[in-house]
Computed example of a mutant assay.
Amino acid sequence: GAEGLAGWLAERRVDAVVDATHPFAAGITAHAARAAAATGVPLVVLRRPGWQPGDGDRWHPVPSLAAAADALPGLGRRAFLTTGRLGLAAFAHLAGVHCVVRSVEPPGPPLPPHAEVLLARGPFTVADETALLRRHRIDVLVTKDSGGAATAAKLTAARTLGLPVIVVRRPPLPAGVAAVPDAAAVLARLGLTPPPPS
Rank of each mutant, 00 (worst) to 15 (best):
G1V: 05
A2H: 15
E3P: 02
L5Y: 00
A6N: 05
G7S: 11
G7T: 00
G7I: 01
L9A: 09
L9D: 05
R13W: 00
V14E: 12
D15A: 15
V17K: 04
V18N: 05
D19G: 10
D19M: 01
A20C: 06
H22G: 04
H22V: 03
F24R: 02
A26S: 13
A30R: 15
A33V: 01
R34A: 15
R34P: 01
A35E: 03
A36Q: 02
T39K: 08
G40N: 12
P42N: 11
L43W: 02
L43R: 00
V45R: 13
L46N: 03
L46F: 03
P53A: 13
P53D: 10
R58C: 05
R58S: 09
R58H: 14
W59S: 04
W59F: 08
H60V: 15
S64M: 11
A66Y: 01
A68L: 09
A68G: 04
A69F: 04
L72K: 03
P73N: 06
G74N: 10
L75K: 13
G76N: 08
G76E: 10
G76P: 05
R77Q: 14
F80N: 00
L81G: 01
T82G: 14
T82P: 01
L86Q: 15
G87L: 00
L88V: 00
L88N: 00
A89W: 00
A90D: 10
A92G: 04
A92C: 07
H93F: 02
G96T: 08
V97I: 12
C99H: 01
V101N: 00
V101T: 01
R102Y: 10
S103P: 06
V104H: 02
P106K: 04
G108T: 13
P112E: 05
V117A: 06
G122I: 08
G122D: 10
T125G: 15
D128V: 06
D128Q: 14
A131N: 09
A131P: 08
L132P: 06
L133D: 08
L133H: 11
R134E: 14
R134F: 07
R137N: 08
R137I: 03
I138H: 11
D139K: 08
V140E: 11
L141S: 01
K144Q: 12
S146K: 02
G147M: 09
A149W: 08
A150T: 14
T151R: 11
T151G: 15
A152L: 07
A153R: 07
T156R: 12
T156M: 06
L161I: 11
L161Y: 14
L161T: 03
L163W: 15
P164V: 02
V168L: 04
R169N: 11
R169G: 12
R169Q: 14
P171T: 12
P171C: 08
P172S: 13
P172H: 09
A175H: 11
V177F: 04
V177M: 02
A178H: 14
A179C: 03
V180R: 00
P181L: 12
P181N: 13
D182K: 05
A183P: 05
A188G: 12
R189L: 03
R189D: 08
G191Y: 08
G191D: 06
T193H: 13
T193Y: 03
P194M: 14
P195R: 13
P197E: 12
S198G: 15
